[in-house]
Design a protein around this nucleic acid. Structure first.
Lengths: 141, 141
DNA sequence: GTAACTGCAAACGCTTTGCACTCCC
DNA sequence: GGGAGTGCAAAGCGTTTGCAGTTAC
């Protein structure tokens, strides 16, 4: 999503277009590793030194409201933000909590089947699979 | 799981068998609504007035270690405890956060397919589907 | 007897809130 | 100019930790 699209989206939904909103939105929408608020903060503070964590949380809520991102809560207490709201599998490392998306026809097929089986309209979904990633395995050796 | 089985499980894994451990374990293992620590606390404090939340958290960690339960983190900050560790779908209400399990052949089949597709050993999984439950829909009318 | 467990309270960490200041529109 | 948005700091809240007293074995 480029500046122009975001600009229109915010304006049409009654949100003001601010430098911070654009920066945070572009940052999260471009990433596939589902960063935490802290990661976003660290990733942007060099370019936007006055940016605060509070603003990041508020912007993330706005983006969720607009349906652009999904929140993924984890047991260790943090929330990760996922810009992919279509059915996919989050491959999560049980050691470093790295996440990446996996998509395939298997998942699409499963989703159509399960939706017709359940007989109600879904408002979203979350599929996780947990395993230790290769990097973490190496570190233990 | 009855007292006898839990007794053996704890003893064989080097954990002492205490009244609190038995009570908390039986409580969580018998429920399908994935209660929070607070819910477990409220559910047991009448029968065990001196029981503390700290003990509940410690016991839940022990049960996780033993592979009897899974932790499900949510965006609103709480953790829910799921005694069903086999592949299933958590049907989650977006309004009251009520959860129930849904199992079917579709899910089993999907699981076998995805595991063979991914080519690594999984340490667990979590499948959620979000929608507003009937009760919450009624309340809004 | 002693090591593990419990209960309590204080500490923690992530997220939210309140409010004065700022900046879109 | 006015109201939404930002930045900062304080508050909130579920969970964890530390420790003295207790209990299983």
């Amino acid at each position: 999503m480029d500046d122009e699209e975001l600009f229109v989206l915010f304006r049409d939904n009654g949100y003001k277009v601010t430098t911070q909103r654009l920066a945070i939105s572009k940052f999260i929408l471009a990433r596939e590793d589902h960063p935490s608020a802290e990661k976003i903060y660290k990733g942007l503070k060099t370019d936007y030194p006055t940016l605060s964590l509070g603003t990041i949380y508020k912007t993330l809520h706005t983006l969720k409201e607009l349906g652009l991102i999904q929140e993924l809560g984890f047991e260790e207490g943090s929330i990760r933000y996922d810009p992919n709201t279509s059915p996919h599998l989050n491959v999560v490392c049980t050691s470093c909590y790295k996440i990446y998306d996996y998509k395939s026809k298997t998942i699409e097929d499963f989703w159509s089947l399960i939706v017709s089986e359940l007989k109600f309209k879904s408002e979203g979904q979350r599929f996780d699979i947990y395993h230790e990633c290769d990097e973490c395995k190496k570190l233990k050796k």
